[in-house]
Amino acid sequence: MRPLLLLLLALLLGLATGSPAQAQSKYLTKKGFISFFSTSPIEDIEARNQQVAAVLDLGSGQLAFALPITGFVFKRALMQEHFNENYLESEKYPKATFTGQFTGATAATLATPGPHPAQATGDLTIHGVTRRITAPATLELKNGQLLATASFDLAPADYKIEIPLLVRNSIAKVVAVKVVLACDAVK
């Protein structure tokens, strides 16, 4: 009887620490920015996406983002077409998503101005393949907005993205991804 009571108490406590903060601590954007950069001896390739939807919860330390693959803009239209048609197969896999948590920064630490280093860990899904990644990040509260940045490297091969032999030397084995989010508080 007593352990059960304790369990209940603990559960309540767990919920209590989780829920009340949620109402005010959620931040959301629909216009986040993600870019990737590939560098090779032949050429540098960059693509930018400004249609990233993201939500961060300072209370629980949760974070999620989703972006349409077709939102990536390249310097060359043909590259963009190949990216969607052949490499990312955006008609089959229209979105990339991430869900995870961040550590190292809380609502309390963010009270002091300036960017705070943090770490984001979670599941990144691209091209139908989900992999666990960890990325260094920064969080900052500024003018009521939550500014978040993160950067990490990923290998297209890990996400079963096939690169044809002819252009293999033009595309890096590992591309650098940059995430910049300016989220507004959710009322």
């Binding site: 959301l28 939807a53 939500v55 999620a64 869900t99 948590q101």
Partner: peptide
């Protein structure tokens, strides 16, 4: 028990967050 409930809560919140975003 507290830890268990926290992780349970966290996992719950996580799926919620993505659904929320969708």
């Amino acid at each position: 028990a507290g830890l268990a409930s926290l992780t349970f809560g966290a996992a719950h919140a996580q799926t919620d967050l993505l659904a929320d975003l969708e």
